[in-house]
Design a protein around this nucleic acid. Structure first.
Length: 877
DNA sequence: GCGCTCACG
DNA sequence: ACGTACGTGAGCGCG
């Protein structure tokens, strides 16, 4: 049967607007509603696979309902400006995709949908009507399905209703849905109901008498008396409401299916729109036939001849700017991409005399000129001979600074976001082939890939530095982020030694415990189930055993630790489950997980990523060495397997309360500055000052509370968060916060200023000029907006701390090398540096760490360091 | 591929 | 009323 999908345009756009986080493109256009709409649309197309599609919109003009009922005017809540401006945008995108838009003066979208749906059904079509508005349920019919997408927590669930579903949920038929609404009214549509009749009474009356008319025919039988009286008095109102609530199914709308037949949605025009709106995930849906066009104007050349390559390198060395990328994966070089002008790009293939060593040597020479723009320098460094003295511009890192909220900074991202160019992605061109495979099997595609890569690197050089300078981030880029690439590369290369046998022995011990606990839990619950499955665990605990827990997640019961901890005192099995979780986590993630990463050199070489976090921190992957257990004894013991090589020890230095010190500095609050200048124990002095007690009389509880408030301040304070953390009432939490702000008024002014500033400018900045955009502040969604406020308060603090330790890392790493030491920086954990230190260099390294970390930034409070040494990471903390 | 849970700062 | 502390990454279960 022919399938038709009809969409309630305003309603879905509205849903998307409130459900999707605030988004703006580089032009500052709000795009979240359009984005959400399109996601719902594509999901529908995939699931329903319709042959026909149309979207209905309301018009501004008054409708027949206004004529009927004066108060209907102006009933709609005014649309927020951020949403309003997206309506024309949405229509243009739909038009670009060739999707018909239905409107009719004097009628609402509902009426058009109703009329078209019924006509299409009569013509033998299978119809789906999509809306966020439950009023549409009255249209549900044998061949008309009402589909209501519900966006919560970022994902979209769709509820669908045929007449039997309406009945199941509301007891009444789709037609009677109108009758119920007529009686109860609807405040959001400003449809007046009969006074003192609510949903319950209305439903009961309609179930009993069939319709509004039926109710009035049997008015004498109506109970309770109050309802009867009200119905008597307001008959005109009930009848009017019925007319207002009833969707018109014979509006003057012509519908012939051909108007709505789905053609090629993936048009060039639509693609351009998605590009402009920066909907990357949607762009991926478009076939590559659209993207090939960009290539038409560029000339890509494959170079396989030594003399030609020589000449090209020669020319590159002398040119003003070169785009260059060494194409290397794993241990293998496949070639080099070069670009010296905006027209031509070259792939120098590894072939014949053009060996890997040759290319690496030439590229080193080229990079040393200091005019090279590349992409992803860190991954090329294993093949190049470069160091702190060499400035190589990495366009990906520049693009990260310009917008740290993106997931990727590949050449196609740069092309779209900065170069006004549409380039096919690596996945488009090479599918899942490696470089070596692609060069062999798909030489054309590989040439194209290398061409775009080189071209984008070159073109980035023409624009990104200006952008960085315009945004005040040139120094940050040149002095911190670029040198940092070397520090990170050095840490990755160096790795950290791990005692394989001790790690697996630790794992064996855990596994024994896991087996014992598993059996005990099975015995105590009376069922053999997978304890690792939150679903099964929830069912066993909360259904089979009847523990009181209540639903918390959208998929079922929450079995998170904080929920289980509340139950543990009363149910011994719950404590066993918590223990099981601890052992299972330590075993799978750490004992076994880390074991898989020990290389042939007996060391783990984690990757340190520079372009991931929104705040400027680095991240660590494969494996993550920034979350090795420390808070609990059992987990902390893992650190004993991380060891220095023979003749070396570990020196571990961490900043003491760096974020709070940054807060003191940035806020300029004189009392806080004075407090941190003098105090050893920051949380204790906070307690002393906030709660007005002498420092030596601060109890552990008071200190704990003050510490929680300090954390809260750094996270972007909220009474809710603090109350959860301390298990106190919101009111008490608010009192703590107010007391804190009374004590340190400068902090309050500072944080308020950050939010106001972010609202005005759209971003916040660190001391060193690093920016974080805060688009959520423009959201109409309360939750999103509140999140934006917390982000505005937290990011400058967390980000400044990140800037500071980056500076320290660079200087420590540089000095260790330049002073000819054998000691090496091997890890960074946000406020901590770990140096594998030659025993005889210990004093010198201590001095370097202490000096470079303390003076990385000149704050109004001292930057204090705690330092320890040890024969393993456990001892050195 | 996503949700849940949990490890870290 | 809304439903939350900020920033990450990994393993597991499940559809």
């Amino acid at each position: 049967m022919e399938k038709l999908v009809l969409i309630d345009g305003h309603s879905i756009l509205n849903r998307a607007f409130y459900g999707v986080p605030g988004l703006t493109n580089s032009e500052g256009l709000h795009t979240n509603a359009v984005y959400g709409f399109l996601n719902i649309l594509f999901k529908l197309l995939e699931e329903e696979k319709p042959g026909y599609l149309a979207v209905a919109f309301d018009l501004k003009a008054p409708t027949f309902r206004h004529t009927m009922y004066d108060a209907y005017k102006g009933t709609r809540k005014p649309m927020p400006e951020e949403l309003h401006e997206q309506v024309p945008l949405m229509k243009e995108v739909l038009t670009a995709m060739g999707i018909p838009i239905f409107t009719r003066e004097g009628y609402e979208a509902d009426d058009i949908l109703g009329t078209v749906a019924k006509k299409a059904q009569a013509a033998g079509m299978e119809v789906t009507v999509v809306s966020g508005d439950r009023d549409l349920l009255q249209l549900s019919d044998v061949h008309i399905k009402i589909s209501i997408p519900k966006t919560s927590r970022g994902t979209t669930e769709v509820h669908t209703y045929y007449p039997e579903d309406v009945k199941r949920e509301y007891q009444v038929t789709p037609e009677q849905f109108i009758d119920v609404k007529a009686l109860m009214g609807d405040t959001s549509d400003n449809i007046p109901g009969v006074p003192s009749i609510g949903e319950k009474t209305a439903t009961n009356l309609i179930l009993q008498f069939g319709s509004v008319n039926g109710v009035y025919e049997h008015l004498s039988e109506v109970k309770p008396p109050r309802a009867k009286k009200s119905l008597e008095e307001h008959r005109d109102l009930a009848e009017l409401s019925y007319k207002l609530a009833k969707i018109c199914i014979d509006a003057p709308v012509e519908f012939s299916p051909e108007d709505a037949r789905i053609g090629d949605l993936y048009t060039k025009e639509a693609y351009e729109y998605m590009s402009r709106l920066e909907f990357k995930s949607l762009l991926a849906r478009f076939g590559d036939h659209v993207k090939k066009e960009a290539a038409a104007t560029l000339d890509f050349h494959a170079v396989t001849d030594l003399a030609v390559a020589e000449a090209l390198f020669q020319k590159a060395m002398g040119s003003e700017r070169t785009g260059a990328v060494l194409l290397a994966e794993g241990p293998e070089i496949s070639g080099a991409a070069l670009c010296l002008d905006g027209q031509n790009a070259y792939l120098i293939q590894k072939e014949g005399f053009l060996t890997g060593e040759y290319l690496a040597g030439k590229m080193t020479e080229l990079y040393r000129t200091g005019h090279v723009w590349t992409l992803g320098l860190k991954s090329q460094l294993p093949f190049l001979d470069l160091g702190y003295g060499d400035t190589v511009y990495d366009a990906a890192v520049a693009a990260y600074l310009l917008n740290p909220l993106k997931d990727t900074y590949d050449y196609d991202d740069l092309a779209r976001d900065h170069l006004g160019l549409t380039a096919p992605s690596r996945a488009d061109l090479l599918k899942k082939l490696t470089y070596a495979e692609a060069m062999d099997q798909e030489p054309e595609a590989f040439l194209s890939f290398a061409g775009f890569l080189g071209h984008c690197a070159y073109q980035s050089g023409g624009i990104l530095m200006e952008k960085l300078e315009a945004e005040g981030m040139k120094d940050l880029y040149l002095e911190i982020e670029l040198p940092l690439i070397y520090a990170l590369y050095h840490m990755e290369e160096e790795g950290i030694a791990v005692k394989r046998e001790e790690l697996s022995a630790y794992g064996e011990k855990l596994k024994q415990q896991i087996t014992v606990l598993e059996q005990e839990i099975w015995d105590m619950t009376g069922s053999q189930f997978n304890i690792n499955s939150p679903k099964q665990l929830g069912e066993v605990l909360f259904e089979k055993m009847g523990l009181k827990g209540g639903k918390k997640t959208k998929t079922g019961y929450s079995t998170a630790a904080d929920v289980l901890e509340k139950l543990a005192p009363d149910y011994p099995v719950v404590q066993k489950i918590l223990d099981y979780r601890t052992y299972a986590k330590l075993n799978s993630t750490y004992a076994e997980g880390l074991g898989n990463f020990i290389g042939p050199d007996g060391r783990i070489h984690s990757r340190f990523n520079q372009t991931i976090t929104a705040t400027g921190r680095i991240s660590s992957t494969e494996p993550n060495l920034q979350n090795i257990p420390i808070r609990m004894e059992l987990g902390r013991a893992i650190r004993k397997v991380f060891v220095p090589r023979d003749g070396f020890i570990f020196l571990d230095a961490d900043y003491s309360q760096i974020e709070l010190r940054v807060l003191a500095h940035m806020s300029g609050d004189s009392r806080l500055i004075e407090a941190y200048r003098s105090a050893q124990d920051i949380h204790a002095i906070t307690a002393s000052q906030v709660f007005h007690i002498p420092l030596d009389q601060v109890t552990p509880l008071k200190r704990r509370n003050a510490k929680a408030v300090n954390f809260g301040i750094v996270y972007g304070i909220s009474a809710f968060g603090l109350s959860e953390d301390l298990s106190i009432s919101r009111k008490e939490a608010l009192e703590y916060i107010n007391q804190y702000f009374e004590t340190y008024p400068g902090v309050k002014t500072f944080l308020d200023g950050l939010v106001a500033d972010a609202r005005e400018k759209g971003f916040v900045s660190t001391m060193f000029g690093r920016r974080r955009p805060v688009p959520e502040l423009g959201s109409a969604n309360f939750m999103q907006r509140s999140f934006g406020e917390r982000v505005a308060m937290n990011s400058p603090i967390q980000g400044t701390a990140a800037d500071i330790i980056k500076i320290a890392m660079i200087r420590v790493d540089r000095r260790l090398r330049e002073e000819g030491l054998e000691s090496r920086l091997i890890l960074q954990v946000h406020d901590e540096l770990l140096v594998e230190t030659a025993v005889r260099e210990k004093a010198q390294v201590e001095r370097i760490l202490s000096e470079e970390m303390s003076r990385a930034a000149a704050l109004k409070v001292p930057l204090e360091i705690d330092m320890h040494d040890g024969k393993n990471w456990f001892e050195a903390k």
